[in-house]
């Protein structure tokens, strides 16, 4: 399977990475090299095989449903590129 330029553009948008036209072409070639490499997986008979969900089987730990952390907006916001009054600032998202 190989990807065309329109598909690369669509994936780039889904991945939220802006690519210029030159980058799109180059990226397409690189993605096709990788997709060509993984094509050999189609040789394997996987009928009746369960997909892996946990590499080391272990029961998921449960804990009491209680607040154990939080209430620390200053530390949460300490690395924000832009913040005000305890909130992250972003460009306007609603009209």
């Amino acid at each position: 399977m190989s990807v065309d330029q329109a598909t690369v553009r669509r994936i780039a948008h889904l991945a939220r990475i802006r690519l210029g036209d030159g980058d799109l072409a180059r990226m397409g070639e690189e993605l096709n090299a990788i997709l060509g490499f993984v094509e050999q997986l189609n040789e394997v008979d996987v009928a009746g095989v369960e997909p892996m969900v946990s590499v080391i089987p272990m029961p998921l730990a449960l804990r009491e449903d209680a607040v154990t952390d939080g209430g620390d907006p200053d530390r949460v916001l300490a690395n924000a590129p832009s913040s005000e009054d305890g909130f992250f600032l972003v460009p306007k998202v609603v009209e």
Binding site: H13, A15, R16, I17, R18, L19, N79, A80, P81, S82, F88, V90, P91, K92, V93
Partner: peptide, 21 residues
């Protein structure tokens, strides 16, 4: 939005796309 590099964009999607590029 929350940490690290921010590259401004026209709208929020533009900000994401420019920052990640």
């Amino acid at each position: 939005v929350r940490y690290g590099l921010r590259v401004p964009g026209r709208d929020i999607t533009g900000l994401y796309e420019a920052t990640r590029a």
